[in-house]
């Protein structure tokens, strides 16, 4: 069994379960060699000149998990035999803690790197997750992209970032 590939959790994130989840998918694949890449997004202590004290993440969990599944399917469509896992944390996070963990496994390292980058770009576009920033002197909800999985221009931008 092992760890699920797509998770929203209040628990601290670790990469190992994601690496296991994607590496397992490569077993029995036609390629004899492979690559696994990973990404951790961590809480920064500064944002737009504000001294950040902590972040609180909120998610619409069932749709967030489906968004991760969709992103992994998009990556597999673009990079054949590439598998992606995503875990995202919610609740209060201190500076330096990981908010998102991604792993990608592929027969080819270039595809594994690209899929990992693609996944984080797409998460920022379409995952129903929000960060509430608490900084010195106030707090603010961060609002980025209007989530629209069918927006092909956004998807193209994510692909371009992944292949840059």
């Amino acid at each position: 069994m092992g760890a699920p590939a797509f998770v929203v959790t209040t628990d601290p994130l670790e990469l190992e379960p994601l690496i296991d989840a994607v590496a397992r998918r490569l077993e029995g694949a036609p390629a004899s060699a492979g690559a696994v890449t990973s990404f951790l997004g961590t809480v920064r202590n500064e944002n737009r000149g504000r001294r950040v004290e902590r972040l609180e993440y909120e998610a619409y969990e069932p749709l967030a998990v489906k968004s991760f599944e969709r992103i992994a399917a998009e990556a597999a469509e673009r990079w054949p035999d590439t598998h992606v896992a995503v875990h995202h944390r919610t609740g209060a996070l201190a500076i330096g803690e990981a908010s998102v963990a991604i792993a990608a496994a592929s027969p080819h390292r270039a595809d594994a790197f690209a899929a990992c980058r693609y996944a984080i770009e797409r998460i920022k576009q379409i995952a129903p997750i929000w960060k509430h920033e608490f900084f010195e002197g106030g707090d603010v909800w961060i609002e980025g992209a209007t989530a629209d999985p069918d927006d092909e221009e956004a998807r193209t931008r994510a692909l371009q970032a992944a292949c840059a």
Partner: peptide, 10 residues
């Protein structure tokens, strides 16, 4: 029915 403001995950 869920209404979602612009997202900021990651």
């Amino acid at each position: 029915v869920a209404f979602l403001p612009p997202v900021s995950g990651g």
